[in-house]
Design a protein around this nucleic acid. Sequence first.
DNA 1: AAGATTGTTAACGAAATGTTAAAGTCTTTA
DNA 2: TAAAGACTTTAACATTTCGTTAACAATCTT
Lengths: 230, 230
Amino acid sequence: MKPIPTKARILLVEDDTSLGYVIKDNFEQDQLDVCLCEDGELAFQAFETNPFDLCVLDIMLPKLDGFTLAQKIRSINKDIPIIFLTAKSMKEDKINGFQIGADDYMVKPFNIEELLLRIKVFLKRSVKESMTDFYKLGAYNFNHPNLELLHADQIKHLTQKEADLLKLLCEQQDKVVKREEILTKIWGNDDYFAGRSMDVFISKLRKYLSHDLQIEIINYHGIGFKIKVN
Amino acid sequence: MKPIPTKARILLVEDDTSLGYVIKDNFEQDQLDVCLCEDGELAFQAFETNPFDLCVLDIMLPKLDGFTLAQKIRSINKDIPIIFLTAKSMKEDKINGFQIGADDYMVKPFNIEELLLRIKVFLKRSVKESMTDFYKLGAYNFNHPNLELLHADQIKHLTQKEADLLKLLCEQQDKVVKREEILTKIWGNDDYFAGRSMDVFISKLRKYLSHDLQIEIINYHGIGFKIKVN
DNA sequence: AAGATTGTTAACGAAATGTTAAAGTCTTTA
DNA sequence: TAAAGACTTTAACATTTCGTTAACAATCTT
């Protein structure tokens, strides 16, 4: 999975050049990364070759109309929010049709601030969704639900237990987690053998994380473990 | 929110007659077609003989409880959204159990407007899904409603189950889909044999998709599967 | 220094999965 | 209504994976 982007990337498709640039400028002042395309085909090419977080599509476009473009985009990515820009002249029933494939739509002429506001809502939502159970650990990214530990495009697949253990440590980064707590939460009992098994897992995690020397899993003798990033 | 084109048909199962009628009236004012049943057996008979778009089930029901009813409904239609109504007294862990088979649940006493809103979300989603039920998978195009998997002008016809499984994986591309989820949604139960049957289907899909080496269906031991396009 | 705790590696065995084929089930067709 | 065909499940066997345990080394505590 991709690392957390600094700027959200917006695909803006608008054939009216001057309007397009007005919107683009406004968005960029709000720390959005905008790719402006002037027709549907160019837009789709851009979408195929670059990652985006959200699309703003005019309905009336040269070469490939916004609705068809949206379908093609959706065939690649079902989740990406799509906002349509519609002309005022558009008939109601047609708008209803569009609504189905759209996450939102705005009727021209619209207030750019209003559009920005709605975009922010979608971005906030998707950040929230993708951030759940996602931990940053030095040079690593740890995706708990997917059981993946990423480092410089290398993916290490973890087992459920490895992932659960790493998560428990990450949740309490820089704090000592008691052996007893780990054992009861993940192993379900805290006898001698479970304890030794856990030590084996700690050893494995250390090996997986050894590419970043800033990361340490420190043992507190007789107490537990702490994960630390210098 | 705008009404959905044709009237959506709701199966409402609630043994508290007065509450049932209140809900029914509210729904009907919102252009929903409601069939109210007072016990689980009647509800199942109704489901067998009439088409529905969504079910709202009370958990505590005479003759056949909501959970069992949901399983029976699922054995006929895996896709239909099911919303449970639970009493406040129900324990958390039990609710978690229900969540597996449920798409949503509401705790009594609840706001009917809220319930209506959630129903609308499901109905809208299913309309949206049926319109965007096409997936691009590396060099393949997958048309779920037509059960077709296309590759360089070659058409491979899939069976319903093959297509449903592939769809479930595609909907959550790059995410691990739990065995349990696949089994409850597509097989309707998650015993040992259903699991083995699923493994056979995974094997088949891998064979169908083997012309594009970029596509992988990865097993997460004991957890589930993930489809990935490099 | 002695005993307890932890680090690390390897081996074992149970369980899960991959794959192919045979056996069942259901529907279509003649 | 029987045979054929399409599809799913079950069986069988090969392969892989994972957690535990054992074994021994290293480290800590007192």
